[in-house]
Design a binder for these strands. Structure first.
Lengths: 134, 134
DNA sequence: ACCTTGCTGATAATGATTGTCAAAACCATT
DNA sequence: AATGGTTTTGACAATCATTATCAGCAAGGT
């Protein structure tokens, strides 16, 4: 049976409070800094659960960390992520969906899943970078 | 200056000899099993170099490992990877390229890079899976 | 209130990757 | 062929994220 614990709620809340993708470690630190005595292992478990139930989205940063984010919808979708500030925009990718399916089918592949994420610098960070580069 | 060492050649050779993506660890074991006394750290360094110069492609498996593959071209392209046997097909993705650029631009993002990879079961593995499921 | 059983959390364990640094190898030069 | 300045190597330690362990606590049904 699935139980309701304040820890699970805390993790969900911390995720919701965040705009972009966060690492499990960062989430744990954040919770600790607000005084929560939640354990690191529990954060990992809660995140895995949320990802399983579709309440959260997970992806791998190019550096190899697992990042998580509260999902506004549980439809399948992709992300545009600022590599500097972590700002995330959910994007529609119907074109990519069908393309992925096509390509897989053409090559005899089945059970196709895909990883499609775009990393870049958001407008704000671009401006900052340009300013500091001067 | 960049020097030519047999170790670098060995890594490149081992990559070329492989059809799919391989982890650095696997490559190291493979080299060892052929009698090469190459060090693990050196394999990592060689792979990083190859990836830098565009001679190899790297991606993160869903499990978080870094995988490498010899690249037949150094054009930008993507992959269709069998999650069972590691077979890899290089795919053209012009549609996705432009889509990624569009999406990024529309949201004010610059310096857009993207991670686009399709995982699935190749025809052979699909057949095997179906057979064993019976 | 009680009891069963899942959940928690401190810590150890794991596994991949990177840093360190002395010794060895490379390449141009003598 | 010997020399010298540098780069590269490789064994091992260090790091980092994540997972396993396991005893104690707590949630929910009865």
């Amino acid at each position: 049976m699935k139980r309701n614990t304040w820890q699970r709620e805390a993790v969900r809340g911390a995720l919701d409070a965040n705009d972009g993708f966060v690492s499990a470690q960062a989430l744990h630190s954040a919770l600790h800094s607000t005084g929560s005595p939640i354990g690191l292992a529990t954060v990992y478990r809660a995140l895995a659960d949320l990802a399983d139930t579709g309440d959260a989205d997970s992806l791998q940063s190019p550096e190899g960390e697992s990042l998580y984010r509260a999902c506004s919808t549980n439809d399948h979708h992709h992300h545009l992520i600022c590599r500097n500030c972590g700002l995330t925009v959910e994007i529609e990718a119907d074109a990519v969906e069908t393309w992925a399916k096509d390509v897989a089918a053409k090559n005899g592949f089945t059970a196709a899943a895909h990883v499609v994420d775009v990393f870049g610098l958001c407008a704000a960070c671009t401006a900052t970078a340009a300013a500091s580069a001067k």
